[in-house]
Design a binder for these strands. Sequence first.
DNA 1: GTCTATATACAGATAGAC
DNA 2: GTCTATCTGTATATAGAC
Lengths: 180, 180
Amino acid sequence: MSRPPRAKESVLDAFEAALIDGGARGATMDAVAAAAGVSKGGLLYHYASKDALESALLERMRRLVDIDVEDMLRSPEGVVAAFVRTSVQTGSALDRAIIAASRLAQAGHTGASAALREVRDVWEAALRPHTRDETALQLVLLVSDGLYFNSALATGALPGPIPHGAELDALIALVERAAR
Amino acid sequence: MSRPPRAKESVLDAFEAALIDGGARGATMDAVAAAAGVSKGGLLYHYASKDALESALLERMRRLVDIDVEDMLRSPEGVVAAFVRTSVQTGSALDRAIIAASRLAQAGHTGASAALREVRDVWEAALRPHTRDETALQLVLLVSDGLYFNSALATGALPGPIPHGAELDALIALVERAAR
DNA sequence: GTCTATATACAGATAGAC
DNA sequence: GTCTATCTGTATATAGAC
């Protein structure tokens, strides 16, 4: 398991991508197989069921969030600023996993809801020492949730109202002022 | 259209409820018909297709948001405080419509994404005169988005980390201090 | 206006060839 | 390890009786 087959990883990538830009409805086994360049039978060799595919995605997300938190804690910009900033970088592997998991959660997948809640708890624990009090902590988390919500709702064409560049810097400064 | 048939409204209510507590996957025509106490044929008399049912839900949401904004502007607590507070009252008709629409949006329904974006634009315009600058405006909107995100992810059993009572009051106070 | 019965399509999953 | 072919269940939608 230390180095999974390339094909298996690319199937998971295709599933994630299908969720992100087509929603749970479009992430069918057929679509995933086609995007990954394998047949439906080939896909089912690597992942015996759709549930197995979903579990693999959630496990990937859990693994990535630990790395993310380590990076966050070492950021020269400060933990809160790094946290808000990464909440808007929707291109990272973690962000993609989170958005895909959100799609599953809202399609009714309770395991995805629970996994997302766990991710939030990990962040909450990491941020707590760097915020003034619980209210400030919740403010920071909610801003991040809001950024993810807008990323999650932006299906394909529609660009969400997500701040960038100077706007993002101003937002981070405001959140930091309020939170510590 | 000024007073739609009771059965038609209850079908729409059932669809909304099915989306909220089962996700888009569980909101099938069969499930909605059963919950509304009509047969599938009866449902299809009122709404000729699933798409018609979805459109009706989005139209209901658009209608309710206008009423919500009027109430918000008249609130003695202040517009910002009223806005954040109503973002957490997930029992209201508007909140239920928004959460149901979020489920559709993340299932891949682009019309729902667009409608939710419109709702956010309406709020943004209403709040702009009551915030210090654009950054503060975005902060308020993102906190609200975050609250909705957590409500939207809380499927059935799992209670989301949504502040209540004194916690909510403290959060509102903090947001107001930061925003104006 | 509401029902039953049915048509059509497609999802997830299995079997077995190569 | 990957393919084709096929089975089974279920979702949307239609037809037509009452």
